[in-house]
């Protein structure tokens, strides 16, 4: 019997030694998902454009060491739990690209995806009862967060180049 193997999507890695906590990635992400694509206009948009990446605190190793952060977004997991739990069937895995897709039209804001995402990568628009995630800038030419990062902390790597403790090269 034949088995279909789904493509494993490339991964966006954040090299924490380079992360300055500047949040350029968050800003660029929200702008990339705005109507206008321009900062001043985007701030006026209703609904306000949302970032899909979060800069999170790793704490510090002691009083004299730098407070470290990591920019984290949806991992587009090989076996996504969000796909399993979405009660509306609105979260799907594209076997060709390996990307997870959230259908905003189907979302009812039950937050089941939030309940299961092991990375806490779901972003919730609470006022609109809408759950979203990093969509890998689908339909756009560049990855906004990777392009915006001033230290190149964020890089796109092939899945098989990434293991715990191993960095991929730019």
């Amino acid at each position: 019997m034949s088995t279909r193997i789904a493509h494993v999507a490339p991964v966006i890695v954040c090299r924490v030694d380079r992360c300055l906590s500047c949040r350029s990635c968050e800003l660029a992400c929200a702008l990339a998902h705005s109507q206008s694509g321009e900062l001043v206009a985007a701030l006026q948009e209703v609904p306000i454009p949302l970032k899909r990446i979060r800069v999170l605190s790793l704490g510090s190793q002691g009083p004299l060491t730098r407070h470290r952060t990591i920019a984290l977004q949806c991992r587009h997991c090989a076996e996504p739990l969000c796909v399993e739990v979405c009660i509306a069937g609105g979260v799907t895995k594209d076997e060709a690209s390996g990307l997870v897709r959230f259908d905003e039209e189907r979302c009812v804001g039950c937050w089941s995806c939030t309940m299961v995402c092991p990375f806490g990568a779901i972003i919730r628009a609470r006022d609109r009862l809408l759950a979203i995630h990093c969509d890998r800038c689908e339909g756009r030419e560049i990855l906004a967060c990777v392009a915006a990062c001033p230290t190149k902390a964020l890089v796109l790597c092939d899945a098989d180049e990434v293991e715990e403790g191993v960095q991929c090269d730019t």
Partner: peptide, 30 residues
């Protein structure tokens, strides 16, 4: 309220992620 996945990384990866790819580097690598 500040708890996140990052805290788990910071605490030295004490959990097993046997089904998902962790694509972030553990602290102390750089």
């Amino acid at each position: 309220d500040r708890f996140s996945y990052a805290q788990i990384l910071a605490l030295g990866g004490r959990t097993e992620w046997n089904r998902y790819r962790t694509a972030s580097n553990p602290i102390g690598s750089g």
